[in-house]
Design a protein around this nucleic acid. Structure first.
Lengths: 110, 110
DNA sequence: TTTCTCATATCGATTGTCTATATGAGAACC
DNA sequence: GGTTCTCATATAGACAATCGATATGAGAAA
């Protein structure tokens, strides 16, 4: 809790995963690396958070999965955005912007 | 879940409460009204979320409470920021800005 | 052939929010 | 002056998301 840096806001993980996959299909650990890179280390998604989220999102129909081989020649599950996933990304991004706008206004109040 | 407007990001409530109280001491329902007003209706904090949060934050030493009378002549518990609460507001606001910066960068990536 | 690293998976605990409900007391109404 | 309305605080129970820890498997590296 509190100032623990590695803890991310509940609700932002889905958006980061959706966005990562919008840049191209990827396997699980690849997604977590991409998130860390995109946010310059601000968010570090650990396996125990990542995989449950991927399963949840696949069950929701936002992702499709297929087995393949990673660049390190290991078997890996590749995820891609479905059409519904693309729609979800759009609506979650819009929601996020709305939240930021509201918070910004609130934090500037005197 | 999902596109449900009234659901707020877990973690933002504390910050909104701290900020509200930085504008002056207030009782519980007053805080929730202030949050709704500050965010122009984007966030609506219901009692079932508000009071547990207030108790948690008081226990953490960020708020102090004392009984008084509301403007409608009802007994009401007035909350004020402690010194630790002011510190917490500063660090949570900084954290928030860091998160927004990271998310913005991520969402703009191509 | 042992060890290291990549990769996925899951269990249990914790936490924060939500829905619903309860209680008390002053205000307003008749 | 008794009923109803509204303000105000409170809590129990459900639920969902994240975290920490741990497990498993298999190719790479030593």
């Amino acid at each position: 809790m509190g100032t623990d840096r590695s803890r991310l806001l509940q609700g932002t993980l889905d958006l980061l995963i959706l966005k990562s996959l919008a840049l191209g299909e990827m396997h699980g650990l690849g997604i977590s690396r991409r998130i860390e890179q995109l946010t310059r280390g601000t968010f570090q998604v650990k396996p125990g958070s990542l995989f449950p989220a991927l399963h949840r999102m696949e069950a929701a129909g936002w992702l499709s999965a297929s087995w393949g081989e990673s660049s390190a020649n290991r078997k890996a599950k590749y995820y891609a955005l479905t059409r519904a996933g693309r729609r979800q990304l759009g609506s979650e991004a819009a929601e996020w912007r709305k939240i930021v706008a509201a918070m910004t206004r609130a934090l500037l109040a005197t």
